[in-house]
Design a protein around this nucleic acid. Structure first.
Lengths: 248, 248
DNA sequence: AAGTATTTGTTCGATTTCGAACGCACGGAC
DNA sequence: GTCCGTGCGTTCGAAATCGAACAAATACTT
């Protein structure tokens, strides 16, 4: 296993960047740059988790699979976070699927080395527990949002969340995908997207989404977007809330 | 501060009961028995959290408050768990309301003593992190359930969850409350409850709910009840999944 | 014990959302 | 350049859910 050493100053991941330099020594030597190709299932529900992935670029959805085979997004991770949260809790089995929605790269560390680093670095423990709490906040708010808010607002929220992590105004995204993420049917998304489109907030053509009026989208979203972003900022700092995408 | 010393053998809380006796010394002397009166807000969203409450009896809902003032349940805690989870993560502010739905009692420990105990007892840390992960699983599954499952199934699920923690087949509960918990309107619950009632699974009269056919309810629930219960059992053992209520 | 205020459970029309079928646009093959 | 396969976005009737008004039962007051 001979991969080149990674410098902390060059990482784009918000958690790694926030780590005190003295604590970097516990992680850095064990990190390996890996690709996150589109649609890859990084972790599968019920399956083992043998590594943590600190996301450098791209976006990964955390998905619940229901009995009927449908999947619903419970959370999103991007350059502000990581995959393999169960290892932070001392467990090694995933409750959810983690699937790449926007391709990117990550820094991978095996479970054994990760646990050693966690044991030796109180700063790392504290940081990752704060991230876990922020993620819990996201999942919590999303659950209420699913129960109460109409599709149009939820779609605007989801687009903003994706925009934060995409690192560009334009990214590949289909109606069918967004419908699955939101747990609604495709036509529902088409109608909602049509409204946002006619309002000039977005443009989309055949699997190609463009954010054209971000302030407008922020006015169209339910409060859940801001609530979650505020919680991320509180626990991880403003840069994390911006997901290192535009803020990086 | 002169409260009588509590013996580990006498606690009904699943987490405290599962703690290795040697580690009890870090917590026991600081625990104080407190009441959980009906409708009390133990922690308020955005407010400080200055203590952890290990629930002995009763049931407490974890609630998200939305912009329109409505509240939606994101999770439930009973004798299998605790309140003040944010302290386990090293934070001291609550993202949600914690409100008592079925009165009971708890063992309270202040934040400072709790942190000291967490620092000194790896077993306590590991145990409470596993609980935090189980709770995250509950919130995650509930979010997907909110998005996809019809009211009747979700009501059956909620009643089973409450039954686990109520310690009795009969407990006070109104349609209005259940509607708020599920994030649906009152009539929706009335119709669903009427179906369960006519099927002989439950009886209810003016704020008084009786579970009359638990196996029938388990057949009427969506898979989410079993999924969450299974995750609790995996992480905390079968007794915790049964919530110490019937399994006590 | 009767009247009254309060809270609960039910019914109704309007809206949202669902699930299936339809027609269209791109990309590769020849 | 044209054909054809694949996948996308849109339209429709049906069902579930919503929000407001109604009716019934309890608890409090005198």
């Amino acid at each position: 296993m001979s991969h080149s050493t990674i410098q902390q100053s060059s990482v784009r991941n918000g958690l790694l960047a926030a780590l005190p330099p003295a604590d970097w020594a516990h992680l850095g030597p064990h990190l390996e740059a890996v690709e996150l190709p589109f649609d890859q299932t990084v972790h599968a529900a019920g399956g083992p988790v043998d590594a943590v992935f600190f996301i450098e670029t791209g976006m990964v959805s955390i998905l619940v699979t229901l009995e009927d085979g449908s999947q619903v997004e419970s959370g999103i991770a991007g350059p502000e976070g990581l995959l393999g949260l169960t290892l932070v809790f001392g467990d090694s089995r995933s409750f959810t699927d983690a699937r790449v929605q926007l391709e990117g790269t990550a820094l991978r560390i095996g479970a054994a080395a990760f646990h050693t680093a966690m044991d030796r670095s109180p700063a790392l423990r504290a940081l990752l527990l704060r991230y876990a709490l922020a993620f819990l906040g996201q999942v919590t708010q999303s659950g209420a949002c699913n129960a109460r808010h109409p599709i149009e607002n939820r779609l605007a929220r989801w687009l903003l969340t994706a925009h934060d992590r995409a690192g560009a105004d334009e990214f590949p995204m289909t109606h069918e995908f967004m419908a699955m993420m939101l747990g609604v049917n495709r036509p529902g998304v088409s109608i909602a997207a049509g409204i946002l489109n006619r309002a000039g907030l977005i443009r989309y053509v055949r699997g190609h989404m463009t954010i054209t009026d971000r302030p407008g989208l922020e006015a169209a979203t339910c409060e859940c977007y801001h609530t979650v972003r505020h919680e991320y900022a509180r626990l991880l700092g403003p840069r994390a809330a911006a997901s290192a995408a535009s803020g990086g």
